[in-house]
Nucleic acid binder design. Structure first.
Length: 274
DNA sequence: GGCCGTGTTGTTAA
DNA sequence: TTTAACAACACGGC
């Protein structure tokens, strides 16, 4: 499930394959179907002959910056994949779009089994408005403990629900919310407004630490996720609570519990997370 | 073989 | 206004 570490890994693996190349055409895969946001035919012309200047990430969005003031944006949703393959290679079953690249024989393919992903083209100058219209929150390494404390203090939601809210922190999803709360020894169902400044400080550090480790392991592959080269991640082997229901807590050996919170499966140690 | 769980985001309802 | 619930989607596992 692509969250910040997976998206960051995709960006890092795509960068050397895309930077400096030129998009020569866009084609639909043989099994292409309507995505959450339908592809607009006019976008093809806005991409044609554009040289790729860079690839970057904002939250869970992937931004491909193009010469001439256009940007190609991807969101992987739950099962989206973005990878570079040879143009003549067979289309995956749920491949929706292919972006041909020169020089060379490569093609950037967008695949998405469940079609919760999104592709769009925007003028680079409108990116700021786009993200502010979406009320996208701060990157996890860009806020202070005091800021997090204030954001938590102002709401009566569970602390985990706040972590998952992209309008507060951009990029954290279900897996890393659970792992960060374990690292911070915070119970996921704690009311956000009851989290102290000291606890908020620990939580901020935990989030940054967990995400950094996950990026070092190239993200987590549960089922669908692969990086821009089609490689799986390794952080699923480092999970301490996520998907470890009933297994001993790595700190105190108490069996990991699982509850439903904010509509999501939530894993935690009932002994050492309080 | 039908049903459930899976997680992200946008929409709807309370 | 804030918060929770739900729909969208396909597939693996039981």
């Amino acid at each position: 499930m692509p969250e910040l570490p997976e998206v960051e890994t995709v960006v890092r693996t795509l960068r050397p394959a895309l930077c400096g190349r030129t998009i020569t055409g866009v084609r639909a895969g043989p099994f292409a179907r309507r995505l959450r946001l339908p592809w607009k035919p006019a976008w093809r012309d806005r991409l044609a002959s554009r040289r790729i200047l860079g690839v970057r990430r904002r939250g869970k969005w992937i931004i491909v910056d193009l010469k001439g003031g256009e940007a190609l944006l991807f969101h992987l949703g739950m099962t989206g994949r973005l990878r570079v393959v040879l143009r003549q290679s067979e289309w995956a079953k749920h491949a929706h779009l292919g972006f041909a690249l020169v020089p060379g024989e490569a093609e950037l393919r967008f695949e998405d089994v469940r079609r919760f992903g999104a592709v769009r083209v925007l003028p680079t100058g409108e990116l700021g408005d786009f993200f502010s219209d979406a009320k996208l929150g701060l990157e996890p390494d860009a806020f202070s403990s005091g800021w997090l404390f204030e954001r938590l203090r102002g709401t009566r939601r569970c602390v985990k629900a706040v972590l998952l809210d992209q309008r507060v922190i951009a990029g954290v999803g279900n897996i890393y919310a659970d792992e960060s709360l374990f690292e911070a020894k915070l119970h996921p169902a704690r009311l956000a407004c009851d989290v102290s400044l000291t606890e908020a400080d620990g939580l901020r550090r935990a989030i940054v630490r967990v995400l950094r480790r996950a990026i070092e392991k190239h993200g987590s592959t549960i089922r669908d996720y692969v990086d821009g080269n089609g490689q799986s991640g390794g952080y699923q082997h480092e999970f301490r609570v996520y998907d470890r229901t009933g297994q001993p807590c790595p700190r105190c050996r108490t069996p990991i519990a699982r509850i439903r919170l904010a509509g999501r499966s939530t894993h935690f140690c009932p002994q050492c997370q309080t």
